[in-house]
Each structure stands twice: as C-alpha cells, then as structure tokens.
Design a protein around this nucleic acid. Structure first.
Lengths: 157, 157
DNA sequence: TGATTTTTGTTCCATTTGAAACTATATAAT
DNA sequence: ATTATATAGTTTCAAATGGAACAAAAATCA
C-alpha cells in the first residue's frame, strides 16, 4: 500500500478533523453561550443529565469523555447557576447523584432543538445515502482510533 | 425532511467529531511530544514551515487556524528551543520571516514519517474507495460549516 | 506634507485547563 | 478487628489559552 511522503497540513487528516470539529463546536457554542451563559463542558453535562437523570460524577465523566476534575468544575458552576442539584447517596457516602433543576430542564429543552437544528444544517451538506455512509465510516474510524490508542498504551506499559 | 427530536450525545455529530479529533490528535502528539518536547501548536508551526519556509507570523496564522497570539508564543518557544530562526524583512519593518534551523529541519524530517504513519494507520479502517468517498464528504462538510459560520456572523453584525 | 487608519506583532491580565496531592468513604485481605 | 488497598471527588498549583490594550511600521488620504 503506497503512502504519501510529504505532509500538506490542509490534507492531513488529524488537522482537518481538528479544524472541522472546532468550527462545528464553536458554531454550536455561539448559540447557547450567549443565550444561557454556559460553556461547552457545562452544556455537555446538561445534555447527559437530560438524557439520564441521577448520574454520579464518575458516570458522567465516563459518558462524556471529560476527566473528573472537569466534571467537578462543571458541576460547581452549574450548581451556582442553579441548573443542577446534588443529592448524596444513601448507599455510598462518597458519591452524589446529579439532576437538572427546573431551570436546568428548561435550558435542556431549549438547547436541544437548537443543537439538533445545527446538526441538521451541517448534515445538509450530504444527501441521505451519503449521510448513512458517513456515519458508518465515522464509526469505523472511531473504533480504529481507540484500538490504536490501546495498542500504544500497551506498548508504553 | 424529518429531524430527530431527542439528543443522544454519543450520536451527536459535534460530539463525535470532537472526541474523534481529540483522540487522533493526542495519539499523534504522544509520539512527538515525548520524543522532541514540542506541543501541538509548535508541531503545526514546524510542519507549515517545513512545507513553506520563510512565512511570516500572519501567514502562518492564516494557514494553520491559529490566532496571532498563539503564533507569537509558538514562535518564541521554538526560537528558545533553537528549532526556528527569525530574520526581519527589509521590505516591511513590521514583519519577519521564519525558517527552520538545521535542528528544526531534523525534527520535521523525523516527525513527518511518524505523522504520516499514524494517518495511514487510521485510514486502515477504510478501504480505498471508502477513503476517497470520506475525503469528498469531509470536504463538503468543511465547506458547509464555513458557510454556516459566515451566515451566523452576518446575522449578528 | 501631515493626519488618520490599517496592519503586524507583542504584552498584559484574567480565565481555563491539567496533573498531582489530598480527604473521605468503601472494599479486601489477613 | 486491623491494616492495606481502591474508589469518588475536591483542592491546589502551574501551565496553557484568549481577549483587549498596546507599540511600531505602513498605507491611505486630505
């Protein structure tokens, strides 16, 4: 299998992904930050708690690809903003369960359609068949990258 | 055209792109940071100067999707590490041209094959036809997203 | 020419982020 | 039971990042 020998940043997959991802994220963030004053990690927490109420910090961290420090901070901010409520677990004194407040639920209900609309707009670049194909390929790449990562960790252990 | 009404983060395009992009970038970065002690923005500068020697800071910023502050800092760091050299322009007293030093060129020569190898590994998830298709769709999405961004800026002006 | 505006790049300050150390609770092992 | 180990979450400190104000040179224009 032949391989390129020079590197054009504009054609380089990691670079293109990074730029596209940043542009999509900031497009989306520009909508909810100015309207609701929440950051990207805060929005992710709201989104995941909207889907699955009562999660603990650790559960959120694993679902949202944030580290536990980032979760702690997002929780603190969202509690200050009265969008999230914390209730300590009876079963385990170390953990607490997190839920959206009424106000948090309202933010969720307002942002979800906006977020889906942005996604829909971006999908507008592709026809339905292309979209399905893209989804499939994206999944393949995701799996491949996480395999590569595991291999690398294994080697460096 | 029908539209989803609920948001599953794992299926949400901006989220998936962000996770994939971060994983790819950190996979790559783990290789060159530990070997050469350079950061992601520093590597991008080296990459672009390897392709096009003599660029100015502003030219780099526009090619690499970094803001000018980030470029200033990356340049400072790379000059301290003696990987980049600055020479002021005769034509324009404000700008200076940047070039890789011998050592910088060596870093470039060493990292490029590693970077291409990682890209190649990731591409391994797709067969050649899929890869071409993916490239085409990625380009479509890039164009779409930048159009959306321009529209949004236009509205908010 | 002299005044004004733009462009280039840097500095300063505040905010964000990340890693390591730490506290508190729970689990396992002897 | 006592000790050791693991897990959940927080705090602390240093580094990275972003934006606004800034200085210097160039371009515009009156």
């Amino acid at each position: 299998m032949e391989q390129k020998s020079s590197l054009q940043l504009q054609d380089f997959l990691p670079y293109r992904l990074s730029v596209l991802s940043n542009n999509v994220s900031s497009l989306l963030a520009s909508l909810y930050t100015e309207k609701f004053g929440i950051s990207i990690p805060e929005w992710r927490m709201v989104a995941v708690l909207g889907e699955e109420p009562g999660l603990t910090s650790t559960q959120i961290a694993s679902r949202v690809a944030m580290d536990k420090v980032a979760v702690t901070r997002a929780v603190q901010n969202l509690i200050e903003k009265r969008l999230v409520r914390r209730s300590s677990s009876q079963a385990d004194g170390r953990v607490s369960h997190l839920n959206l407040t009424k106000a948090g639920q309202r933010v969720y209900d307002d942002v979800v359609p906006m977020a889906l609309a942005v996604e829909h707009q971006v999908w507008g670049a592709l026809n339905p068949a292309e979209k399905d194909y893209w989804d499939e390929m994206l999944s393949k790449m995701e799996r491949r990258v996480s395999t590569l990562r595991d291999e690398l960790l294994e080697i460096n252990k």
